[in-house]
Nucleic acid binder design. Sequence first.
DNA 1: CTTGAACCTATAGCTACTAGAGCACTTAGG
DNA 2: CCTAAGTGCTCTAGTAGCTATAGGTTCAAG
Lengths: 144, 144
Amino acid sequence: MLTIGKLGEAAGVKVPTIRYYEQIGMLPPPERSQGNQRLYTGKALDRLTFIRHARDLGFPLEAIRELLGLSDTPNQPCAAVDQIARRQLAAVKARIARLTALEAELERMLEQCGCGNIADCRVIEVLGNHELCAHDHAASEDKA
Amino acid sequence: MLTIGKLGEAAGVKVPTIRYYEQIGMLPPPERSQGNQRLYTGKALDRLTFIRHARDLGFPLEAIRELLGLSDTPNQPCAAVDQIARRQLAAVKARIARLTALEAELERMLEQCGCGNIADCRVIEVLGNHELCAHDHAASEDKA
DNA sequence: CTTGAACCTATAGCTACTAGAGCACTTAGG
DNA sequence: CCTAAGTGCTCTAGTAGCTATAGGTTCAAG
């Protein structure tokens, strides 16, 4: 039986995050000690490790919830699992594409700046006038 | 003089967002009509366009606030502007690097999945066990 | 004059946590 | 046995950058 601190250490998750996961139903409420402290089993550690890893791979909590549900039905075909992973991969690819465009635009801006006065700073100028942009980076979602 | 709707249309920013920007001090409170409706000048449009564009390039609002402050002092050297842009570029590069690692990991996971039962689904297995990963994608910040 | 679109304020919600206040419990040393 | 440090508890509020909703007012066209 693990205290919340040990569990967090073992899974690489901060203690408040574990309580948060419990609160939103990602982790089942564990047993409590006589003094009302949470006591976790190895199963809880597995589940939390799974969550942590999926989070590291960028899966949103909702997707992880689905994956956890699916992993409880081992005899089903894994097409649904695949689909979630593919969706995530597509999201990652889209973000990379967008960020690469931003990177190019930022580099162009910086190269062109002669670093004189702000009055003729290329960075400020470009920001004020989209026409000066090489690409159309104006898509929404995934700012930064 | 533009109403908030026209302003939003012209700058490509939604109306509630404009009001939000005013609330947090990114835009000065404009004049009001007799009926208490906001009336904007061309200057406000310039400022909002600047904000919009910088947001599209991923600058956080705090950085944009700095840039707007700097653009009001045109006779200063633009080193400070450059520094903000460079910081943003570095952040974008870091995100791209991280996302590229995630992309590789997700692709590896999906390739290896024979798409049979969930019981032997590679995706579920990898998520449960970090040891099966090729890279160390466990850095924090910028999930997804 | 009436209708409908566009405006107003205020509040709450979104993701995924993180930080803080103010307590209770647990454990190792004396 | 006692005490102090460390860990745990609950609850609330805050982060970024909006978005949505409710319930009301104003404006422009017909």
